[in-house]
Design a protein around this nucleic acid. Structure first.
Lengths: 269, 269
DNA sequence: GAATTAGTTCCATTATTTGGAACAAAATTT
DNA sequence: AAATTTTGTTCCAAATAATGGAACTAATTC
Protein backbone atom coordinates (compact mmCIF):
# COMPACT_ATOMS: atom_id res chain seq x y z
CA UNK A 1 0.00 0.00 0.00
CA UNK A 2 1.14 3.50 -0.69
CA UNK A 3 1.15 6.16 1.98
CA UNK A 4 0.07 9.31 0.26
CA UNK A 5 0.87 12.74 1.56
CA UNK A 6 -2.63 14.03 0.88
CA UNK A 7 -4.05 11.31 3.10
CA UNK A 8 -7.25 13.18 3.79
CA UNK A 9 -8.20 13.63 0.20
CA UNK A 10 -7.21 10.09 -0.63
CA UNK A 11 -9.34 8.73 2.21
CA UNK A 12 -12.35 10.63 1.12
CA UNK A 13 -11.84 9.42 -2.38
CA UNK A 14 -11.65 5.82 -1.24
CA UNK A 15 -14.78 6.01 0.90
CA UNK A 16 -17.23 7.07 -1.71
CA UNK A 17 -16.09 8.31 -5.02
CA UNK A 18 -18.50 7.62 -7.75
CA UNK A 19 -17.68 11.05 -9.07
CA UNK A 20 -20.39 12.67 -11.09
CA UNK A 21 -22.92 9.94 -10.46
CA UNK A 22 -22.61 10.14 -6.70
CA UNK A 23 -23.37 13.84 -6.66
CA UNK A 24 -26.34 13.42 -8.94
CA UNK A 25 -27.83 10.56 -6.97
CA UNK A 26 -27.40 12.52 -3.76
CA UNK A 27 -29.41 15.24 -5.42
CA UNK A 28 -32.09 12.76 -6.44
CA UNK A 29 -32.29 11.57 -2.86
CA UNK A 30 -32.55 15.11 -1.61
CA UNK A 31 -35.54 15.79 -3.80
CA UNK A 32 -37.12 12.39 -3.17
CA UNK A 33 -36.93 12.77 0.60
CA UNK A 34 -38.48 16.22 0.60
CA UNK A 35 -42.08 16.63 1.64
CA UNK A 36 -43.13 18.15 -1.63
CA UNK A 37 -41.83 19.83 -4.78
CA UNK A 38 -38.74 21.97 -4.18
CA UNK A 39 -37.78 25.25 -5.71
CA UNK A 40 -34.33 25.84 -7.06
CA UNK A 41 -33.42 27.89 -4.02
CA UNK A 42 -34.63 25.24 -1.56
CA UNK A 43 -32.32 22.72 -3.14
CA UNK A 44 -29.51 25.24 -3.34
CA UNK A 45 -29.61 25.81 0.40
CA UNK A 46 -29.57 22.08 1.20
CA UNK A 47 -26.94 20.97 -1.29
CA UNK A 48 -23.65 22.76 -0.89
CA UNK A 49 -23.09 23.37 -4.56
CA UNK A 50 -22.57 26.66 -6.33
CA UNK A 51 -25.57 27.97 -8.21
CA UNK A 52 -24.22 27.40 -11.68
CA UNK A 53 -23.23 23.85 -10.93
CA UNK A 54 -26.49 22.97 -9.28
CA UNK A 55 -28.45 24.42 -12.13
CA UNK A 56 -26.69 22.27 -14.68
CA UNK A 57 -26.97 19.16 -12.55
CA UNK A 58 -30.70 19.64 -12.16
CA UNK A 59 -31.08 20.29 -15.87
CA UNK A 60 -29.36 17.04 -16.68
CA UNK A 61 -31.53 15.09 -14.26
CA UNK A 62 -34.61 16.66 -15.79
CA UNK A 63 -33.42 15.95 -19.30
CA UNK A 64 -33.07 12.28 -18.40
CA UNK A 65 -36.52 12.20 -16.82
CA UNK A 66 -35.24 11.38 -13.35
CA UNK A 67 -36.57 14.69 -12.12
CA UNK A 68 -39.48 16.73 -13.36
CA UNK A 69 -40.32 20.40 -13.17
CA UNK A 70 -43.86 21.49 -12.41
CA UNK A 71 -45.46 24.59 -13.83
CA UNK A 72 -44.16 26.67 -10.94
CA UNK A 73 -40.62 25.62 -11.76
CA UNK A 74 -40.39 23.35 -8.74
CA UNK A 75 -38.55 20.08 -8.91
CA UNK A 76 -39.96 16.66 -8.08
CA UNK A 77 -39.00 13.07 -8.69
CA UNK A 78 -39.71 12.03 -12.25
CA UNK A 79 -41.93 9.27 -13.45
CA UNK A 80 -39.14 7.53 -15.24
CA UNK A 81 -37.99 6.15 -11.92
CA UNK A 82 -41.37 4.54 -11.48
CA UNK A 83 -40.96 2.82 -14.80
CA UNK A 84 -37.51 1.52 -13.97
CA UNK A 85 -38.55 0.40 -10.52
CA UNK A 86 -41.66 -1.33 -11.75
CA UNK A 87 -39.62 -3.51 -14.06
CA UNK A 88 -37.15 -4.34 -11.38
CA UNK A 89 -39.98 -5.28 -9.06
CA UNK A 90 -41.91 -7.35 -11.55
CA UNK A 91 -38.84 -9.33 -12.50
CA UNK A 92 -37.41 -9.73 -9.04
CA UNK A 93 -36.88 -13.44 -8.66
CA UNK A 94 -36.99 -13.46 -4.90
CA UNK A 95 -40.30 -11.64 -4.82
CA UNK A 96 -41.76 -13.96 -7.45
CA UNK A 97 -40.67 -17.06 -5.59
CA UNK A 98 -42.02 -15.77 -2.29
CA UNK A 99 -45.37 -14.60 -3.56
CA UNK A 100 -47.44 -17.80 -3.42
CA UNK A 101 -46.12 -18.46 0.07
CA UNK A 102 -47.14 -14.99 1.19
CA UNK A 103 -50.63 -15.50 -0.20
CA UNK A 104 -51.03 -18.77 1.63
CA UNK A 105 -49.92 -17.20 4.88
CA UNK A 106 -52.33 -14.33 4.36
CA UNK A 107 -55.23 -16.72 3.77
CA UNK A 108 -54.47 -18.79 6.83
CA UNK A 109 -54.04 -15.87 9.19
CA UNK A 110 -56.42 -13.40 7.62
CA UNK A 111 -54.01 -10.59 8.41
CA UNK A 112 -51.58 -8.56 6.30
CA UNK A 113 -48.38 -10.31 5.24
CA UNK A 114 -45.15 -8.44 4.42
CA UNK A 115 -41.97 -9.40 2.67
CA UNK A 116 -38.98 -7.14 3.32
CA UNK A 117 -35.28 -7.19 2.58
CA UNK A 118 -32.52 -5.79 4.73
CA UNK A 119 -30.42 -3.05 3.24
CA UNK A 120 -27.83 -1.69 5.62
CA UNK A 121 -29.85 -1.05 8.73
CA UNK A 122 -33.08 -0.43 6.89
CA UNK A 123 -35.82 -2.74 5.75
CA UNK A 124 -37.26 -2.19 2.33
CA UNK A 125 -40.63 -3.80 1.75
CA UNK A 126 -40.73 -5.86 -1.40
CA UNK A 127 -44.28 -7.12 -1.22
CA UNK A 128 -47.44 -6.97 0.82
CA UNK A 129 -50.53 -9.17 0.71
CA UNK A 130 -53.68 -7.90 2.33
CA UNK A 131 -57.16 -9.18 2.92
CA UNK A 132 -60.25 -7.56 1.40
CA UNK A 133 -60.63 -4.20 3.04
CA UNK A 134 -57.37 -2.61 1.99
CA UNK A 135 -57.45 1.11 2.44
CA UNK A 136 -54.04 2.19 1.13
CA UNK A 137 -53.07 -0.65 -1.11
CA UNK A 138 -49.60 -0.06 -2.46
CA UNK A 139 -48.30 2.33 0.13
CA UNK A 140 -45.96 -0.15 1.72
CA UNK A 141 -44.08 -1.49 -1.28
CA UNK A 142 -40.70 0.16 -1.69
CA UNK A 143 -41.09 1.77 1.70
CA UNK A 144 -38.05 1.86 3.93
CA UNK A 145 -38.23 1.53 7.71
CA UNK A 146 -35.50 1.24 10.35
CA UNK A 147 -34.65 -2.41 11.00
CA UNK A 148 -34.49 -2.03 14.79
CA UNK A 149 -38.19 -1.34 15.26
CA UNK A 150 -39.81 -3.66 12.75
CA UNK A 151 -40.41 -7.38 13.00
CA UNK A 152 -38.99 -8.09 9.57
CA UNK A 153 -35.96 -5.94 10.34
CA UNK A 154 -35.13 -7.57 13.65
CA UNK A 155 -35.69 -11.04 12.23
CA UNK A 156 -33.29 -10.30 9.36
CA UNK A 157 -30.70 -8.78 11.71
CA UNK A 158 -30.83 -11.88 13.90
CA UNK A 159 -29.44 -13.92 11.02
CA UNK A 160 -26.21 -11.93 10.95
CA UNK A 161 -23.20 -13.07 12.93
CA UNK A 162 -22.16 -10.89 15.86
CA UNK A 163 -19.41 -9.04 14.05
CA UNK A 164 -21.57 -8.01 11.10
CA UNK A 165 -24.47 -7.24 13.39
CA UNK A 166 -22.30 -4.89 15.44
CA UNK A 167 -21.24 -3.16 12.24
CA UNK A 168 -24.79 -2.49 11.12
CA UNK A 169 -26.02 -1.14 14.41
CA UNK A 170 -22.85 0.82 15.15
CA UNK A 171 -24.09 4.26 14.23
CA UNK A 172 -27.79 3.78 14.65
CA UNK A 173 -29.96 6.44 16.16
CA UNK A 174 -32.68 4.93 18.30
CA UNK A 175 -35.56 7.21 17.57
CA UNK A 176 -38.52 6.43 19.84
CA UNK A 177 -41.45 6.05 17.43
CA UNK A 178 -43.69 4.78 20.24
CA UNK A 179 -43.30 4.13 23.94
CA UNK A 180 -42.38 0.53 23.11
CA UNK A 181 -39.62 1.29 20.63
CA UNK A 182 -36.27 -0.21 21.63
CA UNK A 183 -34.11 2.59 22.94
CA UNK A 184 -30.52 1.41 22.67
CA UNK A 185 -28.16 -1.04 21.03
CA UNK A 186 -28.15 -3.00 24.29
CA UNK A 187 -31.92 -3.49 24.20
CA UNK A 188 -31.79 -4.42 20.55
CA UNK A 189 -29.00 -6.95 21.09
CA UNK A 190 -30.89 -8.52 23.98
CA UNK A 191 -34.00 -8.84 21.82
CA UNK A 192 -31.96 -10.32 18.99
CA UNK A 193 -30.50 -12.93 21.34
CA UNK A 194 -34.04 -14.03 22.15
CA UNK A 195 -35.01 -14.01 18.50
CA UNK A 196 -32.11 -16.29 17.66
CA UNK A 197 -33.22 -18.78 20.29
CA UNK A 198 -36.89 -18.69 19.34
CA UNK A 199 -36.38 -18.42 15.61
CA UNK A 200 -38.85 -15.56 15.20
CA UNK A 201 -39.26 -11.92 16.13
CA UNK A 202 -42.07 -9.83 17.57
CA UNK A 203 -42.90 -6.23 17.05
CA UNK A 204 -45.28 -5.14 19.80
CA UNK A 205 -46.20 -1.62 18.80
CA UNK A 206 -42.56 -0.64 18.48
CA UNK A 207 -42.86 1.22 15.20
CA UNK A 208 -46.48 2.25 15.17
CA UNK A 209 -48.87 2.40 18.08
CA UNK A 210 -51.56 -0.25 17.86
CA UNK A 211 -49.71 -2.38 15.32
CA UNK A 212 -48.11 -5.74 16.17
CA UNK A 213 -46.41 -8.47 14.17
CA UNK A 214 -44.53 -11.78 14.19
CA UNK A 215 -41.69 -12.20 11.71
CA UNK A 216 -39.20 -14.84 10.66
CA UNK A 217 -35.83 -14.43 8.93
CA UNK A 218 -34.99 -15.52 5.39
CA UNK A 219 -31.42 -15.97 4.16
CA UNK A 220 -31.00 -16.20 0.45
CA UNK A 221 -28.36 -16.03 -2.21
CA UNK A 222 -25.87 -17.73 0.09
CA UNK A 223 -26.49 -15.31 2.94
CA UNK A 224 -25.76 -12.53 0.51
CA UNK A 225 -29.31 -11.31 0.97
CA UNK A 226 -31.17 -11.14 4.25
CA UNK A 227 -34.91 -10.75 4.37
CA UNK A 228 -37.98 -11.53 6.43
CA UNK A 229 -41.68 -12.36 6.32
CA UNK A 230 -44.20 -11.07 8.79
CA UNK A 231 -47.86 -11.18 9.73
CA UNK A 232 -49.08 -7.81 10.90
CA UNK A 233 -52.31 -6.57 12.39
CA UNK A 234 -53.98 -4.18 14.81
CA UNK A 235 -53.27 -4.94 18.46
CA UNK A 236 -56.94 -5.25 19.39
CA UNK A 237 -57.37 -8.12 16.95
CA UNK A 238 -53.88 -9.57 16.95
CA UNK A 239 -53.31 -10.59 20.54
CA UNK A 240 -50.09 -11.86 22.03
CA UNK A 241 -51.59 -15.35 22.01
CA UNK A 242 -52.36 -15.19 18.31
CA UNK A 243 -48.87 -13.96 17.50
CA UNK A 244 -47.50 -16.98 19.38
CA UNK A 245 -49.86 -19.31 17.51
CA UNK A 246 -48.83 -17.89 14.16
CA UNK A 247 -45.11 -17.97 14.82
CA UNK A 248 -44.58 -21.57 13.59
CA UNK A 249 -46.54 -20.75 10.42
CA UNK A 250 -44.42 -17.71 9.75
CA UNK A 251 -41.22 -19.65 10.32
CA UNK A 252 -42.48 -22.43 8.04
CA UNK A 253 -43.29 -19.87 5.35
CA UNK A 254 -39.82 -18.36 5.62
CA UNK A 255 -38.29 -21.83 5.34
CA UNK A 256 -40.37 -22.71 2.29
CA UNK A 257 -39.25 -19.54 0.58
CA UNK A 258 -35.62 -20.32 1.38
CA UNK A 259 -35.97 -23.85 0.05
CA UNK A 260 -37.63 -22.69 -3.14
CA UNK A 261 -34.91 -20.12 -3.69
CA UNK A 262 -32.16 -22.66 -3.18
CA UNK A 263 -33.78 -25.08 -5.59
CA UNK A 264 -34.36 -22.40 -8.16
CA UNK A 265 -30.83 -21.10 -8.11
CA UNK A 266 -29.00 -24.37 -7.90
CA UNK A 267 -26.86 -25.29 -4.89
CA UNK A 268 -23.79 -23.50 -6.20
CA UNK A 269 -21.23 -22.05 -3.84
CA UNK B 1 -29.12 -3.78 -34.39
CA UNK B 2 -27.50 -0.41 -33.87
CA UNK B 3 -26.01 0.11 -37.29
CA UNK B 4 -25.56 3.82 -37.35
CA UNK B 5 -23.33 6.05 -39.39
CA UNK B 6 -21.03 8.56 -37.79
CA UNK B 7 -23.27 11.44 -38.73
CA UNK B 8 -26.22 9.80 -37.01
CA UNK B 9 -24.17 9.31 -33.91
CA UNK B 10 -23.15 12.94 -33.98
CA UNK B 11 -26.78 13.94 -34.34
CA UNK B 12 -27.80 11.88 -31.38
CA UNK B 13 -24.99 13.35 -29.37
CA UNK B 14 -26.14 16.84 -30.15
CA UNK B 15 -29.77 16.08 -29.35
CA UNK B 16 -29.18 14.59 -25.95
CA UNK B 17 -26.26 15.98 -24.08
CA UNK B 18 -26.35 14.97 -20.48
CA UNK B 19 -22.80 13.73 -20.62
CA UNK B 20 -21.89 11.18 -18.02
CA UNK B 21 -25.39 10.85 -16.64
CA UNK B 22 -26.91 10.06 -20.00
CA UNK B 23 -24.56 7.16 -20.54
CA UNK B 24 -25.18 5.77 -17.09
CA UNK B 25 -28.93 6.00 -17.35
CA UNK B 26 -28.79 4.30 -20.73
CA UNK B 27 -26.98 1.46 -19.00
CA UNK B 28 -29.60 1.33 -16.28
CA UNK B 29 -32.26 1.09 -18.94
CA UNK B 30 -30.37 -1.66 -20.71
CA UNK B 31 -30.24 -3.76 -17.58
CA UNK B 32 -33.80 -2.94 -16.57
CA UNK B 33 -35.21 -3.93 -19.94
CA UNK B 34 -33.40 -7.25 -20.01
CA UNK B 35 -35.31 -10.41 -19.28
CA UNK B 36 -33.15 -11.32 -16.34
CA UNK B 37 -29.79 -10.70 -14.70
CA UNK B 38 -27.02 -9.91 -17.20
CA UNK B 39 -23.42 -10.92 -17.13
CA UNK B 40 -20.70 -8.40 -17.80
CA UNK B 41 -20.22 -9.75 -21.30
CA UNK B 42 -23.93 -9.58 -22.15
CA UNK B 43 -23.92 -5.91 -21.31
CA UNK B 44 -20.63 -5.39 -23.11
CA UNK B 45 -22.06 -6.71 -26.35
CA UNK B 46 -25.17 -4.52 -26.14
CA UNK B 47 -23.57 -1.29 -25.06
CA UNK B 48 -20.89 -0.08 -27.41
CA UNK B 49 -18.41 0.81 -24.74
CA UNK B 50 -14.87 -0.46 -24.30
CA UNK B 51 -14.43 -3.03 -21.57
CA UNK B 52 -12.54 -0.84 -19.15
CA UNK B 53 -15.05 1.97 -19.41
CA UNK B 54 -18.03 -0.29 -19.01
CA UNK B 55 -16.52 -1.94 -16.01
CA UNK B 56 -16.05 1.32 -14.17
CA UNK B 57 -19.52 2.56 -15.11
CA UNK B 58 -21.11 -0.59 -13.75
CA UNK B 59 -19.03 -0.38 -10.60
CA UNK B 60 -20.23 3.13 -9.98
CA UNK B 61 -23.85 2.18 -10.50
CA UNK B 62 -23.44 -0.72 -8.10
CA UNK B 63 -21.72 1.47 -5.54
CA UNK B 64 -24.69 3.80 -5.61
CA UNK B 65 -27.15 0.94 -5.25
CA UNK B 66 -28.79 1.56 -8.60
CA UNK B 67 -27.57 -1.82 -9.80
CA UNK B 68 -26.87 -4.95 -7.83
CA UNK B 69 -24.63 -7.93 -8.45
CA UNK B 70 -25.91 -11.39 -7.66
CA UNK B 71 -23.70 -14.19 -6.42
CA UNK B 72 -22.92 -15.25 -9.98
CA UNK B 73 -21.61 -11.79 -10.73
CA UNK B 74 -24.61 -10.91 -12.86
CA UNK B 75 -26.07 -7.43 -12.83
CA UNK B 76 -29.65 -6.54 -12.05
CA UNK B 77 -31.56 -3.41 -11.14
CA UNK B 78 -31.01 -2.43 -7.54
CA UNK B 79 -33.57 -2.04 -4.84
CA UNK B 80 -32.65 1.56 -4.23
CA UNK B 81 -34.69 2.48 -7.27
CA UNK B 82 -37.74 0.91 -5.68
CA UNK B 83 -37.24 3.09 -2.64
CA UNK B 84 -36.89 6.26 -4.69
CA UNK B 85 -39.86 5.40 -6.86
CA UNK B 86 -42.07 4.49 -3.96
CA UNK B 87 -41.62 7.91 -2.42
CA UNK B 88 -42.27 9.64 -5.66
CA UNK B 89 -45.41 7.62 -6.11
CA UNK B 90 -46.73 8.05 -2.60
CA UNK B 91 -46.27 11.81 -2.77
CA UNK B 92 -47.49 12.30 -6.29
CA UNK B 93 -50.15 14.94 -5.99
CA UNK B 94 -51.98 14.01 -9.15
CA UNK B 95 -52.28 10.39 -8.10
CA UNK B 96 -53.46 11.36 -4.63
CA UNK B 97 -56.10 13.70 -5.99
CA UNK B 98 -57.33 11.14 -8.49
CA UNK B 99 -57.52 8.21 -6.12
CA UNK B 100 -60.94 8.66 -4.52
CA UNK B 101 -62.42 9.25 -7.96
CA UNK B 102 -60.88 6.07 -9.27
CA UNK B 103 -62.29 4.11 -6.34
CA UNK B 104 -65.75 5.46 -6.94
CA UNK B 105 -65.57 4.56 -10.61
CA UNK B 106 -64.40 1.07 -9.71
CA UNK B 107 -67.27 0.57 -7.31
CA UNK B 108 -69.89 1.74 -9.78
CA UNK B 109 -68.63 -0.32 -12.70
CA UNK B 110 -67.21 -3.29 -10.83
CA UNK B 111 -64.33 -3.45 -13.29
CA UNK B 112 -60.68 -2.46 -13.08
CA UNK B 113 -59.90 1.26 -13.26
CA UNK B 114 -56.60 2.66 -14.49
CA UNK B 115 -54.93 6.03 -14.25
CA UNK B 116 -52.12 6.65 -16.72
CA UNK B 117 -50.01 9.60 -17.81
CA UNK B 118 -48.66 10.27 -21.27
CA UNK B 119 -44.91 10.44 -21.60
CA UNK B 120 -43.76 10.96 -25.16
CA UNK B 121 -45.74 8.35 -27.04
CA UNK B 122 -45.98 5.99 -24.10
CA UNK B 123 -48.49 5.66 -21.32
CA UNK B 124 -47.18 5.02 -17.85
CA UNK B 125 -49.72 3.67 -15.41
CA UNK B 126 -49.80 5.63 -12.18
CA UNK B 127 -52.55 3.75 -10.38
CA UNK B 128 -54.93 0.87 -10.68
CA UNK B 129 -57.99 -0.01 -8.64
CA UNK B 130 -59.34 -3.52 -8.87
CA UNK B 131 -62.26 -5.44 -7.46
CA UNK B 132 -61.82 -8.38 -5.15
CA UNK B 133 -60.23 -11.17 -7.12
CA UNK B 134 -57.00 -9.48 -8.09
CA UNK B 135 -54.48 -11.99 -9.29
CA UNK B 136 -51.45 -9.83 -10.02
CA UNK B 137 -52.04 -6.81 -7.91
CA UNK B 138 -49.30 -4.32 -8.48
CA UNK B 139 -48.06 -5.46 -11.83
CA UNK B 140 -49.56 -2.59 -13.74
CA UNK B 141 -48.26 0.37 -11.77
CA UNK B 142 -45.21 1.92 -13.38
CA UNK B 143 -45.81 -0.16 -16.47
CA UNK B 144 -45.32 1.52 -19.81
CA UNK B 145 -47.41 0.75 -22.88
CA UNK B 146 -47.54 2.35 -26.33
CA UNK B 147 -50.12 5.13 -26.41
CA UNK B 148 -51.53 4.15 -29.81
CA UNK B 149 -53.04 0.87 -28.68
CA UNK B 150 -54.38 1.71 -25.23
CA UNK B 151 -57.52 3.55 -24.27
CA UNK B 152 -55.76 5.84 -21.84
CA UNK B 153 -53.07 6.57 -24.42
CA UNK B 154 -55.40 7.44 -27.24
CA UNK B 155 -57.57 9.54 -24.95
CA UNK B 156 -54.52 11.50 -23.79
CA UNK B 157 -53.24 11.92 -27.35
CA UNK B 158 -56.62 13.28 -28.43
CA UNK B 159 -56.11 16.27 -26.14
CA UNK B 160 -53.02 17.41 -28.06
CA UNK B 161 -53.34 19.91 -30.85
CA UNK B 162 -52.62 18.65 -34.36
CA UNK B 163 -49.06 19.91 -34.51
CA UNK B 164 -47.97 18.34 -31.26
CA UNK B 165 -49.88 15.19 -32.04
CA UNK B 166 -48.05 14.84 -35.35
CA UNK B 167 -44.75 15.25 -33.52
CA UNK B 168 -45.44 12.47 -31.08
CA UNK B 169 -46.60 9.96 -33.61
CA UNK B 170 -43.95 10.88 -36.19
CA UNK B 171 -41.58 8.02 -35.63
CA UNK B 172 -43.94 5.51 -34.17
CA UNK B 173 -43.73 1.86 -35.08
CA UNK B 174 -47.15 0.32 -35.27
CA UNK B 175 -46.53 -3.08 -33.88
CA UNK B 176 -49.60 -5.32 -34.25
CA UNK B 177 -50.17 -6.68 -30.77
CA UNK B 178 -53.50 -8.20 -31.80
CA UNK B 179 -55.53 -8.37 -34.99
CA UNK B 180 -57.35 -5.21 -33.87
CA UNK B 181 -54.30 -3.07 -33.21
CA UNK B 182 -54.25 0.13 -35.27
CA UNK B 183 -51.75 -0.34 -38.05
CA UNK B 184 -50.77 3.12 -39.18
CA UNK B 185 -50.66 6.80 -38.31
CA UNK B 186 -53.63 7.30 -40.64
CA UNK B 187 -55.79 4.84 -38.70
CA UNK B 188 -54.69 6.35 -35.42
CA UNK B 189 -55.46 9.89 -36.58
CA UNK B 190 -58.89 8.82 -37.79
CA UNK B 191 -59.63 7.23 -34.43
CA UNK B 192 -58.41 10.31 -32.60
CA UNK B 193 -60.71 12.50 -34.67
CA UNK B 194 -63.63 10.38 -33.47
CA UNK B 195 -62.38 10.50 -29.91
CA UNK B 196 -62.25 14.28 -29.98
CA UNK B 197 -65.86 14.43 -31.15
CA UNK B 198 -67.14 11.86 -28.65
CA UNK B 199 -64.92 12.92 -25.76
CA UNK B 200 -63.84 9.38 -24.94
CA UNK B 201 -61.79 6.55 -26.41
CA UNK B 202 -62.27 2.83 -26.82
CA UNK B 203 -59.76 0.06 -26.84
CA UNK B 204 -61.40 -2.99 -28.34
CA UNK B 205 -58.78 -5.68 -27.90
CA UNK B 206 -56.14 -3.53 -29.54
CA UNK B 207 -53.39 -4.18 -27.04
CA UNK B 208 -54.35 -7.51 -25.58
CA UNK B 209 -56.77 -10.06 -26.99
CA UNK B 210 -59.93 -10.32 -24.93
CA UNK B 211 -59.40 -7.03 -23.11
CA UNK B 212 -61.51 -3.91 -23.78
CA UNK B 213 -61.79 -0.48 -22.23
CA UNK B 214 -63.30 3.01 -22.32
CA UNK B 215 -61.10 5.93 -21.44
CA UNK B 216 -61.35 9.71 -21.07
CA UNK B 217 -58.60 12.33 -21.27
CA UNK B 218 -57.34 14.45 -18.38
CA UNK B 219 -55.36 17.65 -18.88
CA UNK B 220 -53.61 18.96 -15.85
CA UNK B 221 -50.95 21.41 -14.83
CA UNK B 222 -52.08 23.80 -17.54
CA UNK B 223 -51.94 21.16 -20.27
CA UNK B 224 -48.39 20.50 -19.22
CA UNK B 225 -49.41 17.00 -18.24
CA UNK B 226 -51.72 14.75 -20.20
CA UNK B 227 -53.30 11.72 -18.66
CA UNK B 228 -56.33 9.48 -18.80
CA UNK B 229 -58.69 7.28 -16.80
CA UNK B 230 -60.11 4.03 -18.05
CA UNK B 231 -62.41 1.17 -17.12
CA UNK B 232 -61.05 -2.13 -18.35
CA UNK B 233 -62.38 -5.65 -18.41
CA UNK B 234 -62.57 -8.93 -20.29
CA UNK B 235 -64.51 -8.76 -23.54
CA UNK B 236 -66.94 -11.51 -22.55
CA UNK B 237 -68.13 -9.45 -19.61
CA UNK B 238 -67.51 -5.94 -20.87
CA UNK B 239 -69.66 -5.72 -23.98
CA UNK B 240 -69.75 -2.87 -26.43
CA UNK B 241 -73.04 -1.78 -24.87
CA UNK B 242 -71.57 -1.60 -21.41
CA UNK B 243 -68.59 0.39 -22.63
CA UNK B 244 -71.04 2.88 -24.14
CA UNK B 245 -73.03 3.04 -20.90
CA UNK B 246 -69.92 3.69 -18.87
CA UNK B 247 -68.49 6.34 -21.14
CA UNK B 248 -70.30 9.28 -19.48
CA UNK B 249 -69.17 8.05 -16.06
CA UNK B 250 -65.59 7.83 -17.19
CA UNK B 251 -65.73 11.32 -18.70
CA UNK B 252 -67.32 12.65 -15.52
CA UNK B 253 -64.56 11.05 -13.44
CA UNK B 254 -61.89 12.60 -15.65
CA UNK B 255 -63.58 15.98 -15.31
CA UNK B 256 -63.81 15.70 -11.53
CA UNK B 257 -60.13 14.92 -11.33
CA UNK B 258 -59.32 17.93 -13.51
CA UNK B 259 -61.49 20.19 -11.38
CA UNK B 260 -59.93 18.95 -8.16
CA UNK B 261 -56.47 19.49 -9.56
CA UNK B 262 -57.24 23.00 -10.68
CA UNK B 263 -58.68 23.89 -7.30
CA UNK B 264 -55.80 22.36 -5.48
CA UNK B 265 -53.15 24.14 -7.47
CA UNK B 266 -54.78 27.51 -7.73
CA UNK B 267 -55.77 28.99 -11.06
CA UNK B 268 -52.33 30.43 -11.73
CA UNK B 269 -51.08 30.89 -15.25
C1' DG C 1 -39.94 51.88 -10.06
C1' DA C 2 -36.14 50.73 -7.17
C1' DA C 3 -34.31 47.07 -4.68
C1' DT C 4 -34.09 42.49 -3.67
C1' DT C 5 -34.35 37.79 -4.64
C1' DA C 6 -34.57 33.94 -7.91
C1' DG C 7 -33.06 31.69 -11.88
C1' DT C 8 -29.95 31.26 -16.11
C1' DT C 9 -25.87 31.52 -19.12
C1' DC C 10 -20.94 31.72 -20.04
C1' DC C 11 -16.17 30.10 -20.05
C1' DA C 12 -11.31 29.49 -18.36
C1' DT C 13 -9.88 26.20 -14.91
C1' DT C 14 -10.03 21.79 -12.80
C1' DA C 15 -11.38 17.15 -12.22
C1' DT C 16 -13.35 13.03 -14.18
C1' DT C 17 -14.10 9.95 -17.75
C1' DT C 18 -12.18 7.47 -21.56
C1' DG C 19 -10.22 3.58 -24.01
C1' DG C 20 -6.43 0.87 -25.09
C1' DA C 21 -3.37 -2.37 -23.30
C1' DA C 22 -1.65 -5.26 -19.93
C1' DC C 23 -2.98 -8.24 -16.28
C1' DA C 24 -5.63 -11.86 -13.62
C1' DA C 25 -9.06 -15.30 -13.09
C1' DA C 26 -12.38 -18.68 -14.87
C1' DA C 27 -14.12 -21.69 -17.97
C1' DT C 28 -13.31 -24.69 -21.84
C1' DT C 29 -10.81 -27.62 -24.74
C1' DT C 30 -7.10 -30.70 -25.83
C1' DA D 1 -3.76 -31.51 -15.96
C1' DA D 2 -1.77 -28.35 -19.29
C1' DA D 3 -3.01 -25.24 -22.93
C1' DT D 4 -6.30 -22.19 -24.75
C1' DT D 5 -10.03 -19.29 -24.84
C1' DT D 6 -13.16 -16.52 -22.67
C1' DT D 7 -14.31 -13.43 -19.05
C1' DG D 8 -13.40 -10.00 -15.72
C1' DT D 9 -10.22 -6.28 -13.56
C1' DT D 10 -6.65 -2.68 -13.17
C1' DC D 11 -3.88 1.09 -14.87
C1' DC D 12 -2.70 5.56 -16.94
C1' DA D 13 -1.85 9.27 -20.56
C1' DA D 14 -5.16 11.65 -23.49
C1' DA D 15 -9.76 13.34 -24.22
C1' DT D 16 -13.81 15.03 -22.26
C1' DA D 17 -16.97 16.75 -19.06
C1' DA D 18 -17.86 19.15 -14.66
C1' DT D 19 -16.82 23.12 -11.86
C1' DG D 20 -17.60 27.64 -9.91
C1' DG D 21 -17.29 32.42 -10.14
C1' DA D 22 -19.07 36.31 -12.46
C1' DA D 23 -22.10 38.61 -15.33
C1' DC D 24 -26.72 38.64 -16.74
C1' DT D 25 -31.95 38.40 -17.04
C1' DA D 26 -36.42 37.63 -14.91
C1' DA D 27 -39.47 37.67 -11.32
C1' DT D 28 -40.87 39.44 -6.59
C1' DT D 29 -41.05 42.51 -2.99
C1' DC D 30 -40.84 46.89 -0.92
Amino acid sequence: MELSSDSEKADRRRERETGTLGKLVALLDLVALAEGPMRFTDILSLSDQPRGTLHRQLSHLVEEGLLEVDRDGRYLIGIRLLKLASRSWARNEFRAVAEPHLRRLQEVTGETVHLGVLRGSEVIYLDKVEGRQSVRMYSQIGNASPAYCTGVGKAALSALDDAKLAERIADLEFRPYTEHTLRSAAELLADIRDIRVRGYAFDREEHESGICCVAAPICSDGDHMLAGVSVTGPAYRVTSGKLQDWAPLVVATADSIMTDMRNRMGPKR
